[in-house]
């Protein structure tokens, strides 16, 4: 059987409008052969979770530069769980201080990529989580 086509939602929760990083990652992952769904800036946690479920994605990548990651990232993981969708892998990126990463990992964010991360690192992570 041929390899399953992975679907990835790239979403921007919170109030900052800096979508350059999110768009860069979305485009780079497309070029790597993934199907990437991009929904634009200022999405609520609820809308991100509903979108992830309707689109039946395998991954949700969250980008945040406003500093609200410690509240919003775990909230999205929680909401996925409440909707029986905890199999969807969540990762994050953006301006996130090193010292916050262990907390986010503990809350179920499977990986955090800070600025300057090569796209290959993200691809390696995605491939390591593939479960088909």
């Amino acid at each position: 059987m041929k390899e399953k086509k992975l679907r990835i939602l790239i979403a921007k929760p919170g109030l900052d409008g800096h979508d350059r990083g999110a768009k860069y990652v979305a485009r780079a992952l497309k070029d790597e052969g993934y199907e990437v769904i991009y929904t634009g800036i200022r999405q609520t946690a609820e809308s991100i979770v509903k979108t992830a479920i309707q689109e039946d994605v395998d991954f949700v990548g969250l980008s945040l530069l406003s500093g609200a990651h410690n509240e919003l990232f775990p909230k999205i993981v929680e909401l996925l769980k409440e909707n029986d969708a905890e199999d969807i892998v969540v990762f994050g990126g953006g301006v996130i201080p090193e010292e916050d990463i262990p907390f986010l990992r503990e809350k179920g964010i499977q990986a955090v990529f800070t600025p300057g991360t090569p796209i290959k690192t993200i691809v390696d992570f995605i491939e390591s989580q593939r479960n088909d």
Binding site: A26, K30, D31, E35, V36, T39, Q43, E46, S47, K50
Partner: peptide
């Protein structure tokens, strides 16, 4: 889908996100 990589950037939804929370 890209005929070269098979990847795709699906962005139509961006214009419809105002309905994202409507069940």
């Amino acid at each position: 889908s890209s005929p070269f990589t098979g990847g795709a950037l699906l962005g139509d939804r961006l214009r419809m996100q105002s309905h994202a929370e409507d069940e």
